[in-house]
């Protein structure tokens, strides 16, 4: 793995060029594979591919890369592109039965939602062995006669994984944030007694802080503190984080300015909480344990509550600014 690979990883982790970070599907070799070497299947997202080969130091293996259009194994399996048909096609196209003496392929366990092992066997003669969830366990799995320990079969969601997801979540929230910040500054500029620029900064300063705090609450605090925030619904966790941050901003406002504008601070506290709740709810997509039924259930309640809070908060702020 070269510097270029590391740089690419950093960029896509930050959300840039993420949908076009691919490798060519097909057959690859790691080390010096022969007829007895294991066959490992992966997706054509370059992050998946690099991660896998990075964990195979000193192991000779064949890699079959499926066309998943730059999507990782788990998500692609959920959508079906990492699936039985594509796997059978690639196995046949790479003439694997001539290259190896055995008839076993190792599919990542998280590919299982898209792959029916019994159908693969029927259609191309290869037996699917599900590998561990994490590529880092592959050397042990291979050494252990392709048997995974129960721990290797569990998908956890540790702190460092939640941390790694923050940049991409922030980039995706970023364009909306810039738009909202511009709107706050323009509206503030039209209110107040001074000229536009003066008003923008005078009136818009604290609203901007609340807005950024809401994004911080839902986009940073919620992922990091996920297990410690109360509630099971992500919208609740995000809301709690947002409320806590709003309370701290309100206190800072009071300490710094010696007084607060109770109405405006309340309005923006509500908006901050709602923004944080929304972004927290959006983190369901990046998390490793939320079900479709559960997300639908929480959205039925949370989305109306978030919309109402933002409409009520900004309406109240407007009223305070322009009541004359």
């Amino acid at each position: 793995m070269s510097l270029r690979d590391w740089l690419g990883t950093t960029l896509v982790r930050s959300g840039f060029g993420r949908m076009g970070y691919t490798v060519e599907p097909g057959l690859y070799g790691v080390g010096a594979p022969g007829p007895d070497s294991p066959v490992l299947v992966t997706a054509n997202y370059k992050l998946s591919f690099d991660h896998l080969r990075g964990k195979l130091a000193g192991i000779d293996a064949w890699l079959v890369v499926l066309e998943t259009f730059g999507i990782n194994v788990w998500c692609a399996a959920g959508k079906g592109s990492f699936g039985t048909t594509e796997l059978v096609l690639r196995v046949k196209a790479s003439r694997l039965h001539e290259l190896v003496g055995h008839r076993t392929i190792v599919v990542p366990q998280l590919g299982a939602p898209g792959v029916a092992a019994h159908h693969v066997k029927k259609r191309c003669g290869f037996t699917v062995r599900y590998g561990p969830v994490m590529a880092r366990d592959l050397p042990l799995f291979l050494a252990n006669n392709m048997v995974a320990t129960p721990a290797m079969r569990r998908k956890t969601f540790p702190f460092r994984e939640r941390l790694a997801l923050i940049p991409v979540e922030m980039t995706m929230a970023g364009k909306w944030l810039l738009f909202a910040m511009a709107a706050v500054l323009v509206i503030s500029g039209l209110a107040g007694t001074g000229d536009f620029q003066q008003n923008s900064l005078e009136v818009g300063r604290w609203p901007l802080v609340y807005l950024l705090a809401g994004v911080f609450g839902g986009g940073v605090l919620t992922p990091l503190l996920l297990p410690y925030l109360p509630g099971r619904a992500f919208a609740v966790k995000g809301g709690v984080a947002g409320l806590a941050v709003a309370a701290m901003i309100c206190l800072s406002h009071f300490l710094l300015a010696g007084q607060i504008n109770a109405g405006a601070d309340l309005a923006w506290g509500v908006i901050c909480t709602a923004v944080s709740s929304y972004l927290g709810m959006n983190f369901t997509g990046a998390s490793t344990y939320t079900s479709l039924s559960g997300v639908k259930k929480e959205m039925r309640l949370a989305v109306p509550a978030q919309v109402c809070s933002i409409v009520a908060g900004s309406g109240w702020w407007f009223f305070l600014l322009f009541r004359g």
Binding site: W74, G78, P113, V115, H118, T290, L292, S293, M299
Partner: peptide
């Protein structure tokens, strides 16, 4: 989490789940 891996890989279709991705 309703990923559907079990149902897809059950050779006797003993498992049913409305599989999907839990993503807002």
């Amino acid at each position: 989490m309703e990923c559907g891996a079990c149902a897809t890989n059950c050779s006797v279709t003993a498992i049913k789940v409305q599989a999907g991705v839990g993503c807002a």
